[in-house]
């Protein structure tokens, strides 16, 4: 873990442009994302919020051909430097996806996957237990660690995926609409979990659910598309300010439900 204080920034994004092939998806993003807190990214569909999130651990480039201009630094290091070790970057920046995606193996092996890939020394059993405990699912699965992860409910699978990410001890956790495939009770449990993890790492969560952003985050980024369908960052700031006194008309319209 890095020795950052709550006042420092996890990410610094400067003049970032994002292209899928030749189509521009994000234009001129500038933002500091504070460490050790929860930052929510909200905005209408197609505004580039998931794209932005996927550029923070460079997983976007694993899916399709992309080009990124500008600079994104993580704790002061430019992550798009050609010398950057992607493996090391992604170990420090975990990701939880929209749909739970446990590997078709046992619960234990799912959590142990990252540590095994990195050849982590030490007690694997203890690491699996502590990761599952942090993800608030240990009590539900401790008696069936060797059974298939795909037998779990959707909410349990998502918490297992969070445990899997935590097992490699990341500094940042990216969450891409982690509750969109879950029922309200499972959603609530994930939100409690986010609240508890906040002191340990930086969490950046994309969400469609305005109430969720209000409940879990300290800071909020509002993305929107301009006339040419290119995503941009309209407004950012403390969540309570964005929600109660938005400066931009578009933010106000979105939050009050006039579009989106």
């Amino acid at each position: 873990m890095s020795s950052t204080t709550t006042t420092s920034n996890a990410y610094q994004v400067r003049n970032m442009n994002f292209f899928y092939g030749t189509r521009q998806a994000l234009d001129g993003i500038n933002i500091d994302i504070p460490a050790q807190s929860v930052t929510a990214i909200i905005g209408p569909s197609g505004c580039g919020k998931s794209t932005f999130l996927k550029s923070l651990n460079r997983i976007a480039e694993a899916e399709t051909k992309v080009r990124i201009d500008g600079q994104i630094s993580l704790f002061g290091q430019n992550i798009y430097d050609p010398k950057v070790n992607l493996t090391q970057l992604r170990r420090r920046v975990g990701m939880v996806f929209q749909r739970p995606n446990p590997f078709p193996m046992s619960i234990y092996d799912n959590v142990a996957y990252g540590p095994r890939v990195f050849g982590t020394k030490g007690n694997l059993d203890a690491l699996v237990e502590s990761s599952l405990t942090k993800a608030a699912i240990w009590n539900e699965v401790k008696d069936k660690l060797r059974t298939s992860a795909q037998g779990l409910s959707g909410g349990q699978q998502q918490r297992l995926c969070i445990a899997r990410s935590l097992a490699v001890n990341p500094d940042v956790l990216l969450m891409d609409e982690p509750c969109s495939a879950l029922d309200p009770i499972a959603t609530l449990r994930i939100e409690e979990l986010i609240e508890n993890l906040r002191t340990q790492l930086t969490i950046i969560i994309v969400t469609h659910n305005m109430q969720q952003a209000g409940r879990v985050s300290q800071n909020t980024l509002f993305f929107n598309t301009d006339e040419s369908r290119i995503g941009q960052l309209v407004e950012s700031g403390l969540t309570k300010e964005i929600f109660f006194s938005p400066k931009d008309k578009r933010t106000e319209d979105y939050i009050t439900g006039r579009f989106g």
Binding site: N57, I59, A62, E63, L86, T87, Q88, L89, R90, R91, G94, M95, F97, R99, N101, P102, F103, P104, Y113, G114, R116, V117, F118, C161, R164, S165, V168
Partner: peptide, 19 residues
Amino acid sequence: SLRNASLALGATRWETIFR
């Protein structure tokens, strides 16, 4: 999504294929 999950955990392409 399985492939992405593995890559996002920091596994390389070959680790993802074989594991």
